[in-house]
């Protein structure tokens, strides 16, 4: 149900784009896990992208939507040590850990300075859902969990116009509320990461 609402919202936004001043962006996205995400994978992620559409309601405000994909992965060879009561287990083997996060969000942004300024800083807030899959591989065994999380992502960035196009650089703090169970069996399945994005913007005004 929530997926249908989101799809309709994104469709509505895309229709609006053709009617008003708009910008569309495609960005390369990197990310660093924080909280549970960082505990599970502390590697910096260089794999990701985001698509975005924003519609201007006046000179300083846009509303729009975004879809992204961030891939976190890490190969670990550390020993696993588990104590349960009197039973102690040690496991030696190669672990491969993955998280794939797909944020699908609606957003609003406020732009500082004038439209024709050489640099336009902006602040924004994204609200929506994250579809997050987690996979844990150890030896020939594999566990996978996937969950839909509600979440939000405050954002700060700059637009650097170049003719009818622009370069956009932004940073987002992605916070996905706990949902279901994590791949390690924990019911605290909150996920968070900081994403750093740089991309091309196509200006429609």
């Amino acid at each position: 149900m929530k997926f249908k609402i989101l799809t309709l919202a994104l469709l509505f936004i895309s229709i609006n784009l053709s009617a008003q001043g708009f910008l569309g962006a495609i960005s390369y996205s990197t990310a660093l896990g924080m909280g549970n995400t960082g505990d599970y994978i502390d590697n910096f992620s260089y794999k990701g992208f985001q698509f975005e559409g924003r519609s201007f309601t006046n000179r300083n405000w846009t509303f729009g939507g975004t879809f992204g994909w961030n891939v976190f992965d890490q190969k670990i060879t550390d020993m696993i040590h588990i104590e349960e009561g009197d039973k102690v287990s040690d496991i030696d083997g190669t672990q491969v850990r993955y998280i794939n996060s797909f944020p699908m969000m609606v957003n609003g942004h406020y732009y500082f300075l004038k439209r024709r300024s050489p640099v336009r800083p902006f602040l924004g807030l994204n609200v929506g859902v994250y579809y997050i899959t987690q996979r844990f591989e150890l030896g020939v065994f594999q566990i996978e969990r996937d969950n839909w999380h509600f979440g939000f992502a405050p954002e700060a960035g700059v637009l650097i116009p170049i003719g009818n196009m622009a370069i956009m650089a932004n940073a987002k703090y992605n916070y996905a509320f706990s949902a279901g169970q994590s791949v390690t069996g924990s019911t605290d399945n909150t996920q968070a990461y900081m994403s750093f994005n740089i991309g091309l913007v196509f200006m429609g005004y």
Binding site: T94, Y98, F141
Partner: peptide
């Protein structure tokens, strides 16, 4: 750059496990 699951090119030996309790 983006694929769901990176292939780390693990060999048969990389899938060995030693568990002690």
């Amino acid at each position: 750059l983006t694929s769901c699951y990176t292939d780390y090119g693990l060999s048969s030996q990389d899938h060995d496990l030693v568990i002690t309790q």
